[in-house]
Each structure stands twice: as C-alpha cells, then as structure tokens.
C-alpha cells in the first residue's frame, strides 16, 4: 500500500524538531507584539511600541553597526579565503594541500568560544601582537585592539573563514581548467586570464560565500560578546542584554525578529544576485 513504509518513521523526528522550533519562533513573534511590564516576567497587552522603540537612534545605531560589521567581515573573509581556496583547489602538491586544508578548515571544529579565546590571547594589551611590537621597540604603549570593532571583525573573520573557504573551493573546483588554458592560448597572461575567466565563473560561489558569511556573522554572539566586551554592540549582544540583564523580553523579541527579517532580506537579495550567475556556472 505505502511505497515508502519507513517514511513516517524517518520524518517524525524532523517534524517534531520543526514543530518545536516553529513554536519557539511563534512565541518570540508574539512576544514582540506585547507590552513590557517592568518588574514582571510576563508581558502585557498587544502593542507596536517595541518596534517604534527600535527606531530610537541608540538602537538604529546598533543595527547600522551590526550590518557594517557583518559586511566588513564578509568582504575581508572573501579576500582572505579566495587565495586559500584557489591554492587548495589548484595545487598538485599534497603537502601544501593538506596544510591549507588543516589551517583553513580545522578551526571549524574548534567552536566559536575556543577560537575567540585564542584571539583574546593574540589581541590583548599584553597579548601576542602587543608583546611582539613592544619587544621590537615599535610601540611604547599597547595598541588597543580588545573591545574595538577592529578586534571583533578580526575574530569574526577567523570564525567565518572555514565556511567561506569550503564554499569557494566548491565553486572553483567546478571550473574546468581548460577555460584558463584557452584564455592563455588566446594571449591572456595569468592575471588577465584570472580576471576575465576564472573570477567571473566563480561568482556564484563568491555570492553564496559572502551571503552565508553575512548571515553567520549576524547571528554570532560569543565573539562580539567576548572581544567587544560590551563596548562593541551588535544585535545579538543587545538582545542578550535586554533579555537577560533587563528582562525586557518583548523588546528583545522585537529586536530578534527584526534582525531575522533583515537576514532574510539579505539572503533573498543574494539569491536574486546569484540567479544570472548560476546560469554561467552551469556548463
């Protein structure tokens, strides 16, 4: 009767998980439209006040800063990851390949907190960079890198790098080497061949990588919290403060919902941007 007798069995856990997370989302959504009652964990009546509150310069500022940090992180990650991915895909040298794979991809398995700690060791006032610069006599006083946007972006780049490298490698490995050979035989030097052929053909991977990095960074919490230390605000850290320091759940929910909507908007735009590029990649 049923062609796939185990289907229900397999789908059931996924359905449960989906229902649970949908319920959580729905809860957050309804919280966002409820009034905050100071001193109480329970929300009040329906209102749009939370969303109006988001328009206040203080919060609008955080939104802009978050988008800026995410964009910066995504673009810097792209610039760092592209050569790594290119070398990873193109090298025939097995040692180099393993080395690249280990440096670029293994951080993925360390987790955000561990990686961020390592950056605290590097960026701190008595950390690696400052000690070295001091040792070399280049600076008298430590350069402030902790609790700055620079520090947060640096650590976030490291956090998003593995994913970007993986996505770019996937895109690059699908580009036939003959395209570059053809360009070369037609008179294009290595740089021209790269700019006119390889780079445009890898655009679907670039767009996918940048939008993923953007979304990834947008939801990052540990890194901005630990490196930013409250001095660099992002939506995620703000949600945490509002929810767990002021217990203003409705406002935290409104912030989350707006952030989520923003992320979706960015991903949708990226998807539109990829469309014509995907046809290029299909050969």
């Amino acid at each position: 009767m049923n062609k796939r007798p185990f289907l229900a069995l397999f789908v059931a856990p996924a359905t449960l998980a989906a229902i649970a997370s949908a319920a959580a989302l729905a809860a957050i959504l309804q919280y966002a439209f409820r009034a905050y009652v100071p001193g109480s964990l329970n929300p009040g009546g329906l209102t749009l006040d939370n969303f109006f509150a988001l328009l206040r310069p203080l919060y609008a500022q955080v939104f802009i800063q978050t988008v800026w940090i995410c964009l910066l992180t995504a673009l810097i990650t792209l610039v760092v990851a592209y050569p790594l991915a290119y070398a990873l895909v193109r090298t025939r040298n097995v040692t180099l390949k393993s080395f690249l794979l280990i440096t670029a991809v293994t951080p993925l398995f360390l987790g955000e907190v561990v990686r961020t700690y390592s950056w605290i060791i590097v960026l701190g006032n008595t950390g690696f960079i400052n000690s070295v610069l001091k040792g070399l006599g280049l600076i008298d006083r430590p350069i402030q890198m902790m609790f700055t946007t620079f520090g947060v972006v640096t650590a976030l780049v490291h956090v998003t790098l593995p994913v970007m490298v993986i996505m770019l490698s996937a895109a690059l490995s699908h580009i036939d080497r003959d395209y570059e050979k053809a360009a070369t035989s037609l008179g294009a030097g290595p740089v021209k061949a790269f700019l006119t052929v390889t780079l445009p053909l890898s655009m679907p991977g670039v767009v996918a990588g940048v939008s993923t990095a953007f979304a990834w960074t947008f939801s990052a919490f540990a890194t901005p919290q630990m490196i930013g230390g409250g001095k660099v605000s992002m939506i995620s850290t703000l949600v945490y403060q509002l929810g767990f320091a002021s217990f203003n759940f409705p406002f935290a929910a409104a912030l989350s919902v707006t952030g989520l909507a923003l992320t979706f908007a960015v991903l949708a735009m990226a998807k539109q941007a990829i469309k014509p590029l995907e046809k290029i990649g299909a050969h």
Binding site: K181, A182, S185, L201, I280, G281
Partner: peptide
C-alpha cells in the same frame, strides 16, 4: 588551440 570539450567561456 581547440579543446575536446570546446572550452567556450560560458559567461
């Protein structure tokens, strides 16, 4: 050079 798979630039 003419390649076996043509290698025409798809973009």
């Amino acid at each position: 050079v003419v390649f076996q798979n043509y290698a025409l630039f798809p973009h």
